[in-house]
Design a protein around this nucleic acid. Structure first.
Length: 491
RNA sequence: CGGGGUAUAGCGCAGUCCGGUUAGCGCAUCUGGUUUGGGACCAGAGGGUCGCAGGUUCGAAUCCUGCUACCCCGACCA
C-alpha cells in the first residue's frame, strides 16, 4: 500500500502535495470535501474516460447532457429513491445576492427566493426520466441508450480523499427498453464492460455479483457490482449497474405503445463509475516509491532522462533521445523526454517513479559511446542495459509485460486474501486480523446482515455470480444457507 | 451529530506544561559558485500580524474565556 496515502507519519507531504495527484480537499470550509485534481491526476482520468467512452460507443451508446439542477419535487416521485438520497442533497434556495444593508459585504437577497428549491444532482435518474417522458412514445423510440459525463454532489457526512468526495466526476448511463429481458441484459452487459475495463486497463481483478436488498441502489430492482480488493485488505466498490425495472417509468409516467398497440411502461437501467477509480488505481498498485500505473492508462508511458556534463554531451545525448522518442511514438507509445537542466538525474528518477511512469530510459555519455540505453521498469524497479537498436521492440514488449505483471500481482494478492469461514470465530478472526474477502454462508435475511455489520463492520459486498451452490449454515444464526456470499470491510 | 486530536513561513514540525532578548528547525524558494550514472554540496538571502476575538500581566505563541476551522474514529456512502 502506498505509504504516501496511508501513512501520514511519514513526511511524504512535499511530494504528495506538489506532485502527483493532489486530489487534496479544498481548504475553504464551504467546499469541504471537494477535490482539486492536479493536471497529472486529471490526465489519468482523461485516459480512463477515453477508454470507457470507446467501450460505451462500441456497445451502441451515445453521449448527451442533462441539467445540473433538479427540481425538488422530482425526487419525491420515486419513493425508494428519495429515501436513499434525501439525506445528502445540496439545495439551492435563492438565485441572487445583494449588498448587505449594513454595508458589510454581501448577503443572500431574501427577495430572490426560489419558488421551488433546486437540488444539485446527486445522480440524474429523475431529471433524465422526466425528459425521457417526452422522448419515448413508441417501441420505435426504443431502446434509448444514453450516457452522460458529468459531476455530481453528494453531501456525505464524512469524506475520504479520492474515495468519497463531496463533488465527484463520473459517467452515468441511462437506458430505456421495451422489455424486461432487454433491460436486464443491458444492465449485465454494462457490468461486464466495467469488469473488462477494470481488469484489462486498470489491471485490477474484480468480483462480479449482485448486491443484497439493503446494499442496492435506491430505486433499483437489482444492483450489480464489481468489487475490488485494496492492498490494505479493504474492499472497494468500483462500479455499479442497476436494473431499475419500471420504477422510474412509473414515477415519471413514461409509457410507450408496443408492437401489439398496447400501452406499457418502459424498462430501465442505469450504471456509473467515478473518479474513485483513480483512488482504486493508487491503492491497488502503489508502493513505497509512489504510484504504479498500468501502461494502458499511464499519461506518460516512457520517460527518457539524459545524464550529461556540459552542453556538448547534452547535444549528443539529445539527438539519440529524440531519435528514440520519434521511433517509439511511431510505434504508438507516449514518450516524454525530460531534458530539464534544473533537476539532476537522480531527482528525476525519483519523480517519475512517484508518478508511476511504467518505463524509464536513461542515456549517459557511456551509453552514447557504446550505443546502449539503460531501461528501468517501474513495477519491479529493475534495470537493464539494452542496445539502442533494440529499444523500441523491447519497450513495446515491456508495456505488455508490465500490464500483465501488475494484474497478476493484484490477482495473487486477492487470491491470498480470499478466505472461507465456516464458524463465527473464524469469521471474526479473519475480519479483525487479516482483512480481505471472506466467503461465508448467510441466512439471507437483512436482519442477520445488519447484525453482522454491527458486530464486525463487515458488509456483504456481493453475492458473486461465479460461486457454486453449496449447502451450509449461516455464520451467525446457524440457519440453513445454499450459497456463500462475499463479506469484507469496505471503503 | 458523538468521541479524540490539531491550528506557529509554501509544506512538515519544535517551542506552550513552567509567560521574559530580535519566534526556531528541516524541506521548498531566490542569488553566486562547484556539480550531474539514484532525491547534490558550499556560501548567502527572502519569507511569520504564532487560527479568530476578548481577558489577565510591566510583558502572551505560551495562562484564562469564547468562537472558528481542519484531521482521525463512528453513524452515512460511488
Amino acid at each position: 500500500m502506498a505509504k504516501f496515502l496511508t501513512n501520514r507519519e511519514e513526511n511524504y507531504s512535499q511530494w504528495y502535495n506538489d506532485l502527483v495527484i493532489k486530489a487534496d480537499m479544498a481548504e475553504n470550509s464551504a467546499v469541504r470535501g471537494c477535490m482539486v485534481i492536479k493536471p497529472y491526476g486529471y490526465a489519468i482520468w482523461e485516459k480512463i474516460q477515453a477508454e470507457l467512452d470507446k467501450m460505451f460507443k462500441a456497445t451502441g451508446h451515445v453521449n448527451a447532457y442533462f441539467p445540473l439542477f433538479i427540481p425538488k419535487s422530482f425526487f419525491s416521485r420515486e419513493a425508494a429513491h428519495v429515501e436513499g438520497f434525501a439525506k445528502e442533497c445540496a439545495v439551492v434556495t435563492h438565485y441572487r445576492l445583494k449588498n448587505s444593508p449594513d454595508g458589510k459585504g454581501i448577503v443572500v437577497d431574501p427577495e430572490a427566493k426560489l419558488e421551488e428549491e433546486l437540488i444539485v444532482r446527486p445522480t440524474s435518474e429523475t431529471i433524465i426520466w422526466n425528459t425521457y417522458k417526452d422522448w419515448i412514445h413508441s417501441y420505435r423510440d426504443l431502446p434509448l441508450l444514453i450516457n452522460q459525463w458529468a459531476n455530481v454532489v453528494r453531501w456525505e457526512m464524512r469524506t475520504r480523499l479520492f474515495l468519497r468526495t463531496t463533488e465527484f466526476l463520473w459517467q452515468e448511463g441511462h437506458t430505456a427498453h421495451a422489455t424486461r429481458e432487454e433491460a436486464q441484459e443491458e444492465a449485465l452487459k454494462m457490468l461486464n464492460v466495467y469488469a473488462d475495463f477494470v481488469e484489462n486497463f486498470m489491471a485490477v481483478p474484480v468480483t462480479k455479483g449482485v448486491k443484497t436488498e439493503s446494499e442496492k441502489f435506491a430505486g433499483a430492482i437489482d444492483t450489480y457490482t464489481i468489487e475490488m480488493l485494496m492492498q490494505d485488505g479493504k474492499a472497494l466498490q468500483g462500479g455499479t449497474s442497476h436494473f431499475l425495472g419500471q420504477n422510474f417509468a412509473k414515477a415519471f409516467d413514461v409509457q410507450f405503445t408496443n408492437r401489439e398497440g398496447k400501452l406499457d411502461y418502459v424498462w430501465a437501467t442505469s450504471w456509473g463509475v467515478t473518479t474513485r477509480l483513480i483512488g482504486a488505481l493508487i491503492m491497488a498498485h502503489g508502493d513505497n516509491n509512489g504510484l504504479v500505473l498500468p501502461p494502458k492508462l499511464a499519461p506518460i508511458q516512457v520517460v527518457i532522462i539524459p545524464i550529461y556534463k556540459g552542453n556538448e554531451q547534452l547535444d549528443t545525448i539529445s539527438s539519440i533521445a529524440l531519435d528514440l522518442k520519434a521511433q517509439m511514438e511511431e510505434a504508438g507509445l507516449t514518450v516524454k523526454y525530460d531534458n530539464r537542466d534544473t533537476q539532476k538525474p537522480g531527482f528525476k528518477f525519483a519523480e517519475y517513479e512517484l508518478k508511476g511512469v511504467p518505463v524509464r530510459l536513461a542515456i549517459g555519455p557511456r551509453d552514447a559511446q557504446e550505443g546502449t540505453v539503460e531501461v528501468a521498469r517501474r513495477d519491479t524497479l529493475t534495470k537493464e542495459t539494452i542496445r539502442k537498436e533494440e529499444v523500441v521492440q523491447h519497450v513495446k514488449a515491456l508495456m505488455n509485460d508490465i500490464q500483465q505483471n501488475i494484474f497478476r500481482k493484484a490477482a495473487e494478492f486477492r487470491k491470498m486474501k480470499t478466505y472461507k469461514a465456516d464458524t463465527w470465530e473464524e469469521f471474526i478472526d479473519i475480519i479483525e486480523n487479516r482483512g480481505g474477502f471472506v466467503m461465508a454462508h448467510w441466512d439471507g435475511t437483512p436482519e442477520t446482515e445488519e447484525e453482522i455489520k454491527n458486530l464486525t463492520k463487515a458488509t456483504i459486498r456481493a453475492i458473486p455470480f461465479d460461486t457454486q451452490d453449496e449447502e451450509g449454515t449461516c455464520i451467525l444464526t446457524g440457519k440453513p444457507s445454499h450459497r456463500r456470499v462475499m463479506f469484507a470491510r469496505a471503503y
